[in-house]
Amino acid sequence: MYLNVLRYLARRVVFALAAFLFFIVAIFTLPRLIPGNPVDVLVSRLVMQAQANPELIHAVHRKFMEEFGVGLPLWKQFTRFVAQLLRGDLGTSISMYPRKVSEILALFLPWTVALLIPAILVSWAVGNFLGVLIAWRRGTVLDRVITPILLTINRIPFYWFAMVMLFIFAVYLRFFPIGDTYRWGLSPGLNWNFVVNYLHHYALPFLTLVVISTGGWAIGMRSMTIYELGSDYILFADLLGLPQRRLLAYAFRSACLPQVTELGLNFGLMLGGSLLLELVFNYRGMGSITFQALSTLDYPLIQGIFIVLAAAVIAVNLVVDIVYGLVDPRIKVT
């Protein structure tokens, strides 16, 4: 029995590693597909972007020739690249030279995590609860009215909804600040002043994210529950005289399992959405830094962001798979 669990886990881990390797190879290959010397191209963009002084540009150029390993055979470039990665070295930023990419990311990542993870969990819980409720009352007025509304909410673009929310609640009604992560001048820390101010800034992006993602979860849960309620085991339990509540609990349990997997698959989608949302709210997380990296064409930074987010998506999916293996008896004992 434990052998099965181990085999399952081993497969998931191998899959995760393979996926990560795939992305590493992709990110390694892409800049090297540019004809000519990639460093020339990347640095020349810096010259076009900002009127940097020639000395700085030379320093940057030299630094990147070294980091990229230009001139070395490809396989050596690759092993260097991987070795740097393993040391946690994501290279040096061009636009914020000479700061290290990993330093910059360490500054921005926690804010995104603080926004995204609670929003995902809350919307997952609320959405699933709502979905079961609608499934239970399927075919009634509640279902007929709410389901199309949820479908519509599911299709509202994150970023646009963020703009509308910001306009209504911050610009027009002035309930919330019009953006930023916390008031300028405060320093982050676990003190009353900061936490209250942070939460005040946090509320609107958080709610926006929750409202938008709840729709999708609810729709998924509704159809899964309805599917399970029509299954043979529910019929049998019904014919045994077990009460509605109990039947719903059985269906809920079975319907939850695929929703756990969906959690992993949706993480990536929500991550993408929250990056855009941060932009609208001027929330200083990965979204802002991604936008900055893109607009300055800071390739090392883009690459670093990409690697970190890829790793996060893969890790979350691995965790979800492991949790799934622990809750679904069909995997635990075969």
Partner: peptide, 21 residues
């Protein structure tokens, strides 16, 4: 497996990477 990789990955990031080039 490849489907799941593409699926789990935020499409916007993948697109980002390519659009840069």
């Amino acid at each position: 497996a490849s489907t799941n990789i593409v699926l789990a990955f935020p499409p916007i990031l993948l697109l980002l990477l390519v659009t840069v080039f």
